[in-house]
Design a protein around this nucleic acid. Structure first.
Lengths: 201, 201
DNA sequence: GCCGCGTGATGACAGGTGTCACGTGGACGT
DNA sequence: ACGTCCACGTGACACCTGTCATCACGCGGC
């Protein structure tokens, strides 16, 4: 019997996944959480074997949660189950110690298999995403560029961004100009969107 | 026995919801589709009573699918089940003939109840969203403003947008300026993001 | 030591952007 | 017929932005 923990911020999806996985005779959902920062304690208390983690969650992202599980509970394996097939996410998830990466539009029956393989010590990675991840390569952005792009995501003017990060307006424009070049965009908003699509933020 | 059709572009979520709802003794999932433009034919062939529709789907949005169901199959009721609680969506969904509107982070056990109420001829609307929808009121944007904002979503420069819609650059700037005023934003990207958040696009 | 690189900053310049005034025309309601 | 609203356009103006050159500092690698 494989003991599972589910982490997803959407209660309906969480409950539905639990119903789906509980149908399998060798799987048992022993814990459900809606926040990333509750994963480790819930996994410890429920003695879970495998954690299914969404990425977009309040408190702590699924990737960071996987890293925390890796650090705090070395025997427990993490499987990322996410909506967005951002190439950059795959690499970051694996670096964080996740054992698998599956997108939410894979057929439902394959999920149980993925769980079993992860539990058996294998790695499960969506093949399509693995290819994209290799093509794109790692993020070319520096830490500052990444940070400034996240602030540019909502379309704020440069002056606002500069105030938020306590930097000179000129410096902000320089960093963003570099980011625009690296993403192949022509405005900072476009650059921010591209970087987000690739999982660089 | 209430016969259900599920429409969601994420196969995993679709399958999981099916597993969850099939647990209820009086509910039966008789069809599953991943595209909005397959809803009507699948509902007709499977003789469904209630359609659960996600909004973001390829082919046709869940809202447009609800309108099509209303038109083609008058006896069938639609329940929108979506990730995003955009206030503007609620009004548009009801105008399109949907009988209910639920967000995906409602507790799983409430979904079956919502289905039963919709089937009984009642209307089910997330109370929190209903309030927000009333506060915001309907979209103040004109059709052109709405269209131009969608093109501004990815941060494209004005010249690109003007070329895409075959308009003068000056006209595009005038419309976007009006949209910026109506949204309370200070750049077109910010205006686009605000409008999207409110379900005005 | 020196080089490369990230970070922070300044100044200058061309071009993009938001705003406003103003004009035209068509659709719609009264 | 008239007013109102929307769409579309032009021109002008101030301001914002993206780019580039140039400087300085700290850090790690060969």
């Amino acid at each position: 019997m494989i003991r599972l923990l589910l982490a997803d911020d959407q209660a309906l999806v969480r409950g539905a996944l639990a119903a789906l996985l509980d149908l399998e005779p060798d799987l048992e959902v022993v814990a459900q959480v809606g926040r990333g920062d509750e994963v480790v304690t819930a996994a410890r208390e429920s003695a879970a074997d495998v954690c299914l983690l969404d990425i977009e969650m309040p408190g702590l992202s699924g990737i960071d949660a996987a890293a925390a599980v890796r650090r705090e509970l070395p025997g427990v394996r993490s499987l990322i189950v996410t909506t967005f097939g951002r190439p950059g996410y795959v690499r970051r998830a694996l670096d964080a110690g996740a054992a698998g990466f599956v997108v939410k539009d894979t057929p439902a029956r394959q999920l149980a298999d993925a769980v079993r393989r992860v539990h058996a010590g294998l790695r499960v990675i969506d093949p399509h995403l693995a290819a994209e991840s290799l093509i794109d390569g790692p993020s070319p952005l520096t830490e500052r560029e990444r940070e400034l792009l996240t602030h540019a995501l909502d379309g704020a003017p440069v002056a606002t961004i500069a105030a938020r990060v306590h930097l000179s307006e000129g410096t902000v424009r320089n960093h963003l100009s570099a980011a625009i070049g690296k993403t192949g965009a022509s405005t900072r908003s476009e650059a921010a969107r591209i970087a987000q699509d690739r999982g660089w933020l």
